[in-house]
Amino acid sequence: MELILVGVDRSEASSRAVRFACSRAKQEEGQVFLVHVIPWSPYSFTTQDEAARRSAAKQTEIDAATEQIVKPMVEYAEELGATIHKAEVRHGDPVDLMIALADSYSVQEIVVGRTGDSRIRRAIFGSLPSHLTYMASVPVTVVP
């Protein structure tokens, strides 16, 4: 069974990525795995107050992202007739985490939307799709 990992966020491009992944999954009789990654680094600096509230804040972030991003995307994918393997919200580095998920779930393909980062941001940090295409060990499709 072909498993397609789709990175989702609030963007239009992300909806198009889901649509593309769903049609691929149907073609291949596979399933889609939707993931939304909340950017987080264990090496960032926090204030005392943030640290004390972090555990509660993490749950709030997950709940909000599930409600506002993942749930609508799941509904959309179901409307398109795709079988959903899993839909998750995770914290971490989006590129590293998606690659790790692809490895541990034996994903055959990763699909992401080409999000609209500003030119300056892209010049300094690069964009998520381009990092992903460089680093991933499975084919990556970037949906415009």
């Binding site: 987080w40 264990p42 960032s44 600096f45 926090t46 204030t47 995770r90 790790a100």
Partner: peptide, 23 residues
Amino acid sequence: GRYSKPEDAGEVSHFQALATAVS
């Protein structure tokens, strides 16, 4: 982070606790 479990992501890491205390 060599002993941090993947599900600990999003929580206060050892690095963060140390950095907060050190500052």
